[in-house]
Design a protein around this nucleic acid. Sequence first.
DNA 1: TTTCATATTTGAAACCATTACAAATTTATA
DNA 2: TATAAATTTGTAATGGTTTCAAATATGAAA
Lengths: 147, 147
Amino acid sequence: MVSNMKKISEGSTVGVKNVLKSAGIKPTYERLRILKYLEENNNHPTVNMIYDEVVKDIPTISKTTVYNSLNLFVEKDLVLPLVITGTEVRYDRNTKPHHHFLCEKCGKIYDIDIECPYFKKGYVDGYKIKELHGYFKGICKECLKIK
Amino acid sequence: MVSNMKKISEGSTVGVKNVLKSAGIKPTYERLRILKYLEENNNHPTVNMIYDEVVKDIPTISKTTVYNSLNLFVEKDLVLPLVITGTEVRYDRNTKPHHHFLCEKCGKIYDIDIECPYFKKGYVDGYKIKELHGYFKGICKECLKIK
DNA sequence: TTTCATATTTGAAACCATTACAAATTTATA
DNA sequence: TATAAATTTGTAATGGTTTCAAATATGAAA
Ligand SMILES: [Mn+2]
Ligand SMILES: [Mn+2]
Ligand SMILES: [Zn+2]
Ligand SMILES: [Zn+2]
């Protein structure tokens, strides 16, 4: 088993609506659709990836609304922003601290379910840890097969 | 002891000149000064931080030259680019894989000398690891004192 | 329902780090 | 010295993100 992380929700309309309401966010049509995308896709997407899919359902949506919504989700701890490739921010519905793996060949970003003993302790070298950001770069299992 | 990492070089003019030459880089005045800055400061600086200091010695230097030089250093594995704050790239003379700590209060970035067992093995979840990027966010020792 | 205040969305402009590019300058070679 | 190659420089372009004000939608009061 590659990952044993549990899903946050199912991505159903009623599901995401409750998620937004309990976070104190008004569940607008646009926000619901964006959050649904994040729940249905664990691909750590960029703003453009999200926009390109969501605009198929809501042709009038603007990219600014995608930015606004994601910033709001981050503020309310519904979503975790990741900076892995350096060029653009990626968004993760899984806000629990976890590692990632960026494949140099296919560009996919995978979850890596390993533990960091220092993060568990809460301190390193006398410094108080609040967040953990860890990722590997290399070749993923599938691309290794292709050779 | 907070860190037991060894220094790469002393930052002396003859030192950095040899570093550049053995990397196959022509040791121009600008490149020497930029590399010297990196050797004398282990503060993981941004392009602007480097420029602001170097321009005091070389008033005619352009920011493009700082970019060009750093990109060349990265290409020749003399310097490691870090993306930690998300907004701008930082540069590290220490190219050995190591962890970092970003203090939320003072903004300083510290080296953290811990080992990653997965990186040592070379694999996680069947994925081949080539690079390791890990950092913590929190409050550093000094800022904890101030309280 | 109508009215009015508030929240949200939208599109364009601004911002900012980085890159592209071509002209000017320096350096190396003959 | 003359010529070619490499480097530096300044400006313009690029691209992701934010700012901002106008347009639209929502919700409560009348
Ligand atoms: Mn993830
Ligand atoms: Mn470092
Ligand atoms: Zn791959
Ligand atoms: Zn601090």
